[in-house]
Design a protein around this nucleic acid. Structure first.
Length: 350
DNA sequence: AACCTCCCCAACCGCATTAAG
DNA sequence: GCTTAATGCGGTTGGGGAGGT
């Protein structure tokens, strides 16, 4: 029994033969596929249109990459999945030459198991449990926090083998003033005081950004007030000229985005309720300038807070109520710690 | 060599959304 | 606005290769 779209025809199912592939390829390369349901007939195939479409998209298309996923691709899948969940088609858009089916298969066959082995719930990307995590710390060779006293601290980091450096805002300011940039491909921890409107106002929040892009380095810093710092990121002159520059505004619980070449920022601000709203400042202008290459989701980040003013682990995303669109991007690995009293608590053991 | 088990991945299925009439 | 067809997407299946016994 074929699909409803081609139930009148006798259709073949199962694996495609090289002859069928050739017929389909020849037909599509010469005539295109304006209507998939008519492709089988025109191409002389005993297949349904849906099957032809799938074969072309997942296998025959000339722009497919094939082969093993790179480490970078794997990292991108994990980071985007953390935000989007099982939206394979959306995830695949971050990986040129890869199909949703391919990404989905790779996730189910490899990444999911890897995350579980590392102590992460592949659905939520949170730690499965303290015991599980500790057990896997022994097995894993990647960097782990030496100490972290806050019980609600939740790591949703992609495992990276790079060394992490913990620095304060003052160090960043000093280093930028002296044109000493944070090391490439390291994680820099920035501690900022909470905003007055932040329910966690008695505490500090530390947001960890991973500068995994070597061509995107912070060049200037503006401390606008005690609870908001802006770091400008400019692309290296020698790199691709598709993107001119990017910026990142760091607030408590700041939320960063990194795309192919640059780091972008999504800036959560409190609206007085138990909800955060995204405000795009410098980034919004840049996005408008680059709208021809910016076709991606818009997210609203809702952080829930408990009665103690501590950020709950539950973070949801909503793509409504925003006029602008973000760049095609993978979310940057980011750790959020609440109620961190001293930066020393976040020293990482390498 | 024969059989078994595991698991990868191409393909299918069914539902949701979009487009066309 | 309704119906129907086409398309897109995510979950699932099962053929078959690899490795073990």
């Amino acid at each position: 029994m074929g699909h409803h779209c081609c139930s009148k025809q006798k259709v073949k199912r199962g694996l495609w033969s090289p002859e069928e592939d050739e017929k389909l390829t020849r037909h599509i390369t010469t005539h295109g596929h304006s209507c998939w349901s008519s492709v089988p007939k025109l191409a002389g195939l005993q297949r349904c249109g849906k099957s032809c479409r799938l074969r072309w998209i997942n296998y025959l298309r000339p722009d497919l990459k094939r082969g093993c996923f790179s480490e970078q691709e794997e990292r991108t899948i994990i980071d985007v999945h953390r935000i989007l969940g099982n939206r394979w088609a959306q995830i695949a858009k971050h990986l040129p030459g890869r199909t949703d089916n391919e990404v989905k298969n790779f996730w189910n066959s490899a990444i999911k198991k890897k995350l579980i082995a590392q102590g992460f719930d592949p659905n939520t990307h949170n730690l499965l449990s303290r015991n599980h995590h500790q057990n896997n710390q022994i097995k894993s060779s990647c960097c782990k926090p030496k100490t972290c006293n806050h019980p609600n601290s939740t790591s949703v980091f992609t495992n990276l083998s790079s060394r992490k450096h913990v620095i304060s805002m003052d160090i960043i300011k000093a280093s930028l003033a002296a044109s000493i940039l944070p090391p490439i491909a390291t994680t820099t921890t920035i501690t900022l005081p909470h905003s007055q409107t932040n329910p966690c106002k008695s505490s500090l929040t530390t947001t960890t950004y991973n500068y995994m892009n070597p061509i995107c380095l912070p060049t200037t810093t503006n401390i606008e007030n005690s609870n908001l710092a802006t770091i400008e990121y400019h692309q290296n002159q020698t790199s691709s000229n598709n993107l001119l520059s990017s910026s990142s505004s760091l607030t408590p619980s700041g939320f960063g985005i990194i795309n192919d070449n640059c780091m972008w920022d999504v800036e959560p601000q409190f609206n007085g309720k138990e909800e955060m709203q995204l405000v795009q400042q410098q980034g919004a202008q840049l996005l408008q300038l680059q709208e021809n290459i910016c076709q991606e989701q818009v997210y609203k980040v809702n952080h829930e807070f408990n009665n103690n003013g501590q950020m709950a682990e539950n973070v949801t995303f909503d793509n409504s109520n925003f006029d602008f669109e973000f760049v095609d991007s993978a979310l940057m690995p980011c750790e959020i710690y609440t109620n961190v009293n001293s930066i020393d608590q976040l020293a990482w053991d390498c």
